[in-house]
Design a binder for these strands. Structure first.
Lengths: 213, 213
DNA sequence: TTGAAGATGTGACAAAAGTCACCAATAAGC
DNA sequence: GCTTATTGGTGACTTTTGTCACATCTTCAA
């Protein structure tokens, strides 16, 4: 993607923002990019800005004390990180990990203007509410799958979600990565995938899983 | 508790609301009460109002397709149901269960005035944001415990949370109820409780667990 | 081409959790 | 008192998941 200005990004991915808000943001935000694989946020880190994703893809996951991971959801262009809204506003440390899975571009909004945004721009207010709502609902789904389902069903749910979000049926995932996302172990995932393959729902390739449904 | 007016409740539990907001709410809300054990909200139900809890205690939990339960958190006086904010605003059906665990009183805010509240009363806006934030953080904790911890640790976490919220070390819970909240089975909970008792962290009574830490 | 690293497959076993059957203790109602 | 429902205890067993050890296979770089 060619070099777009903050204004270009805002018009493209945040058309619902009122004009004055877009102008305000264009003045005060800086554009930051992260390389694929780069960590954008980690527990214990303080924030001086909230981030609006305008290009790429960000993976949000929780990290356990033992170092285990647990995938929550992806952020895409047009999304904001609900957690960074929380953390920036409350000046608390983040409790989740955010990692760029592709080269990712964000608009960084300094916390100093957050209060102004919230008070004076209705569309910003609606946007933050909508962000909370959406993330909340995603978290509820995550809780469901982990509370009520066995690993086999969770794996199916995970693969389905990946095909939707990555927008391809050839999922570029190793068994090891899947295991990490589900906080399980590679061997177990390998076996479950094999079962699913025998049922005819996927085909296993090296470094990839092909979703057939 | 004697018969309080909406205004009394607002002053007591929502002192942070600006005066005009309290007046507005006093005019437009109705007081509803629920008996102990009464279901206040269930999946598939539409809402015509958002609820502010002003007395009693409400248990929020998720229900699986198989009928299993999964405890999320309690709402207490001064809290609002984040989900009812979502559902009322988006006119979507609820996806969680809410049950009064004690006789509970709420102020019901008709959705018709929600937009007005959001637009014109700053303290309402802050309140809704704060509500989302708090529930979000509670959900993250729930996810952690279920993603990274074994049943034994989850049980400890659960008991601890109960002592905090119920504000007593004599938890009036049967093993069956605990098992339901954790979406496990009574026998397993009984055994784990026994272990914890042997470690000296609790004493088991009939219909109650005494938390010693 | 060869060696190293990473990805996957698999058997054997261990640990955690759920299920079933049944018993004992307690409380509540008649 | 007696009966019955609820609560809790326990052994035996199964299923699910995790762990360990090791074998293949592929890719890539030296």
């Amino acid at each position: 993607m060619a070099n777009l200005s903050a204004n270009d990004y805002l018009n493209k991915y945040f058309p619902q923002f009122e004009l004055a808000l877009k102008e305000k943001l264009a003045q005060h935000t800086s554009i930051k990019t992260f390389e694929a694989g780069e960590l954008m946020m980690q527990p214990g880190q303080y924030f001086r800005s909230t981030m609006l994703v305008v290009d790429g893809k960000v993976k949000l996951y929780r990290q356990g004390e033992d170092g285990g991971e647990f995938f929550m959801y992806y952020l895409e262009p047009g999304n904001a990180c609900a957690l960074s809204l929380i953390c920036a506003t409350k000046q608390e440390t983040s409790e989740v990990m955010a990692k760029a899975v592709e080269k990712t571009t964000v608009l960084a909004i300094p916390i100093e203007i957050m209060d102004d945004l919230v008070r004076n721009y209705k569309t910003w207010y609606y946007f933050t509410l909508e962000t909370y709502r959406n993330r909340f609902e995603e978290l509820l789904q995550v809780i469901d799958s982990v509370a009520f389902k066995g690993l086999d069903e969770r794996l199916l749910f995970y693969l389905k979600k990946q095909t939707e979000k990555l927008n391809t049926k050839q999922l570029p995932l190793t068994h090891q990565e899947i295991a990490a996302d589900l906080n399980s172990s590679r061997e177990v995932i390998s076996r479950l995938l094999k079962k699913i393959e025998q049922r005819g729902d996927v085909i296993l390739h090296r470094n990839a899983v092909e979703w057939l449904k």
